[in-house]
Amino acid sequence: MSTPLDSFLAELRPLAIAAANGSPEPPADAADLLARARRFGDPGVTACALVTLGHAHQHIGALDEAQAAFRAAAPLYAQAGDDRACTEAQVELGYSHYAAGEYPRALAAWLDSLEQVRARRDLHHGTRIYLGVGKVYYALEDFTSALRYHELALQLVRGLDTPKLCCEVLINIAGDAYRMQHFDRALRALAEAGELLAGAVSNHVWEAEVESYLGLIHFARGEYPAAREKLDSAFAIHQENQNLWGKSHVLLALGRTHARLGELSRAEACLTSADELAGQARLTSVSREAAALLADLAIRRGDHAAALRHYKHVHALAAGDETVPPALHLGRQVGERLRQAVLRLRMENARRRLAGQPGGLAAQNRESANSP
């Protein structure tokens, strides 16, 4: 006989899976699920609802709220005795810090769970940690190291029956290879990811990313009409899925593409929207690039007042705050250099712990592959 808890779990589980696959319910609906989950007093059920809420917040760029939800879920999973789900919540917390540009915190969240991952020979979460470390290198524009870690992640995931994780790794490899102008490697990875998305994997965010990278490769090769077509396709997917982060990035790329095609009004509309959406999602780098491109467009049409306005916006974004006195900017720059130095030290420690020590996951995987 079905209990109220059974009925609730039948409702929650598909929503949790959809949220983990990039299509969460709105945060208000996810918060209602959490309130209902708490009434059952089951720590595992409450943790599942918290992770679902975390994905819902992250989808719209509410990263502080997402981090709070993931952070609260981990000890509840531990209380419920679900070690794998606890690790998953910690890994998701790391990814949320990564999305916020908080790279030392992202690394700390992943490394906190690394010992348990290695002890369990948990190649799934080991792959996710390699993937995350590669993402941090990507954010630091060390694309060679990013690609190396993502290729290691691909080696690990090949031994697992996890098409979803394999697809995610392939898309990250495509991003690294694109930035290194290794377009053939990027296209191979995108083709394999596209096959997975056409079959076993359902994730609208990744579908849009594949289209977006194809558009960016066309753009890099000077194939602007083809780039516009692929980027339009990516934007349509993000629009239907209401992905703020994705829409901001694609609109920026579309603005560049329209400008190259001489479609200046469309370029301006795309870049203005990219700046607005990026502001909502706290994507400062996207806003800064959009404002710089808007300034260039204003100069092309002879509107120097508009160009000056956009350049002021660029400088305000670069400074982080228009009201900060110039004398404090040097201190902020020095602080950033120190932060980067600390981060690189942590990255080196992470590299040693992930790959350089006997018994590391990569070594374990090779031993398993070579064992009779």
Rank of each mutant, 00 (worst) to 15 (best):
M1Y: 05
S2E: 15
L5C: 11
A10P: 10
L12P: 11
P14E: 07
L15V: 12
A19Q: 11
G22D: 12
E25D: 15
A31W: 08
P43L: 03
I60K: 01
L63S: 02
E65I: 02
R71D: 14
A73V: 04
A78C: 07
Q79D: 14
A85D: 13
Q90M: 13
L93C: 04
R105G: 06
A109F: 01
W110G: 03
L111C: 11
D112G: 13
D112V: 03
S113R: 02
E115I: 01
A119D: 15
I129H: 00
V133C: 05
F143A: 00
R148L: 01
H150C: 07
A153I: 09
V157F: 07
L160W: 10
D161E: 14
P163C: 08
C166K: 09
N172C: 12
A174T: 12
A177C: 14
H182T: 08
F183M: 11
R185P: 06
A186C: 12
L187R: 15
R188V: 15
G199P: 09
H204C: 10
Y213V: 07
G215H: 03
A220E: 15
G222F: 01
L231W: 03
D232K: 12
S233G: 10
I237V: 15
H238I: 05
A253Q: 10
A253K: 08
R266P: 12
A269P: 08
A269I: 05
C270W: 01
D275I: 00
L277C: 06
T284M: 11
E289Y: 01
D303H: 07
H304Y: 15
A305P: 07
A307K: 01
L308E: 15
H315A: 14
G320E: 06
T323F: 04
H329N: 07
G331P: 02
Q333T: 09
G335A: 01
G335T: 08
A341C: 05
R344T: 14
R346F: 09
R346G: 12
M347P: 11
R351Q: 09
A355W: 03
G356S: 06
A362C: 07
E367M: 14
A369Q: 14
N370L: 15
